[in-house]
Amino acid sequence: MSKKSVHDSVAVFEQALLGSPEKHYTLKLYVAGSSPQSVRAIANVKKICDEYLHGRYELQIVDLYQQPQLAQGEQIIAAPTLIKKLPLPLRRIIGEMSNTERVLVGLDLRKKA
C-alpha cells in the first residue's frame, strides 16, 4: 500500500516535471449515509468529474456509517467531504458540491477568483 503510494507520487512528480496538463485524479468522497445531501453530492461530483476529468480520475465513495473508523483516519469532520488525494496538494471539498465553480477551484481546475 505504502509502496504503491510512493510509486504513485513518483509518477505524479514525474508527470508534473513533464508539465503534462493531463493529470490523473484520485478522489475520495465521504458521505454520511444516503441523506439527500449525500445523494446530491454524489451526483454532483460524478457530473463534474465526467465533464472536466473524463477518463483520468478515480472516484471512491465511502459511507462513513459503514466505515466510521475512516472518519478519524482521514480527518473528516464535515459531510459530505471530497478529498482530492492526487494530484497534490491535498484538498478537502466540503458540502453538497452544488457550487461547481468552487468544486473546480478545489480540484485546482480553476484559479481562485
Binding site: Q72, I77, R91, R92, V103
Partner: peptide, 25 residues
C-alpha cells in the same frame, strides 16, 4: 481533529456528521 483552512473548499451545504461519527465511534 486536524483542520486546515487552506485545504478546505466549501461547495454548498454540509453538516458535521463526520465529527459525530468520529465521536460516536
Amino acid at each position: 481533529v486536524y483542520i486546515e483552512r487552506s485545504e478546505i473548499e466549501e461547495t454548498g451545504e454540509y453538516d458535521l456528521e463526520g465529527l459525530f461519527i468520529r465521536l460516536g465511534l
